[in-house]
């Protein structure tokens, strides 16, 4: 009888601690209202992006008959804005912002035999979806470094197949390819904490950043990384602009 009481007491204590922890985390996320925004620009003449000949698969060739597809390794907008740059907080994050992956499900679509978007950023542990809009089968073959703890996979998606849902265990910039269409090439940018990807004009906004001092890193697949220090204080978004110089 005495034992049972003891057990009940311990259980109560555990419950109290758990509720407290939940409340605390809740408080932190409620506070993560801050934002970091800015623009990423490219300076200089953009490198030549070779055209892609998709004739090997008539479906792809037909889907792109009116456009001329080309590589997307460096995509510069009309105002010099650099697209597909991933921005994330590389230093200064702690606690809950790190431990709770985002709950939205980013989508990586295979459309007209290209990846949309070309770079898909996501949080560690965040579930993402690979979908196909094409009437030809693709295989999705991401190539992580096995030393990071991310496990490589390779699976096909025939036309009409439901989305493939996956997540990654460790932060890493992972190249993804379709071997059936060797020109298809994209990235899974897996980072810890809040992130953003630049749009066609090079603009971005990282949301849900709790107030504090941070280092923001901008990563571009061929141009490398740049960092900037920012302070997020509350109401107004902190600013961080980047400029990548061409060769």
């Amino acid at each position: 009888m005495k034992n049972l009481q003891k057990l009940a007491a311990v259980l109560m204590a555990v419950m109290v601690v758990l509720c407290g922890a939940l409340l605390l985390t809740h408080e932190v996320s409620a506070a993560s209202e801050g934002k970091i925004s800015g623009t990423v620009k490219y300076e200089g003449t953009p490198p030549h992006m070779r055209g892609i000949d998709m004739s090997k698969d008539p479906y792809c060739a037909k889907a792109n008959a009116s456009t001329s597809p080309h590589m997307e390794n460096v995509v510069v907008g009309s105002g010099g804005g650099l697209e597909n740059v991933v921005l994330y907080i590389s230093e200064g994050l702690s606690g809950a912002a790190l431990s709770q992956p985002a709950t939205n499900v980013p989508v990586f679509d295979q459309k007209n035999c290209e990846y949309t978007p070309h770079v898909l950023a996501m949080d560690v542990g965040q579930t993402f979806k690979v979908t196909t809009s094409d009437q030809t089968a693709h295989n999705i073959h991401p190539n992580p470094n096995p030393m990071t703890g991310n496990i490589p996979w390779n699976q096909s998606q025939p036309p009409g197949a439901p989305p493939v849902e996956k997540s990654w265990k460790a932060p890493e910039m992972i190249e993804v390819k379709c071997n059936i269409h060797p020109w298809m090439h994209g990235w899974f940018a897996v980072v810890k904490g809040p992130y953003a990807t630049t749009d066609a004009n090079g603009n971005y906004t990282i949301s849900n950043v709790p107030p504090g001092n941070y280092t923001v890193t901008a990563w571009q697949e061929t141009l490398g990384t740049q960092t900037a220090k920012v302070t997020v204080s509350g109401a107004a978004p902190a600013k961080a602009d980047f400029t990548f110089k061409g060769k």
Partner: peptide
Amino acid sequence: NLAIPGLHLLTKNGAPGDVMTPE
């Protein structure tokens, strides 16, 4: 691209939505 009912039971990744993948 015919879905063969129950095909996904035979394989982990080989039949998303019961449609057979090339592999």
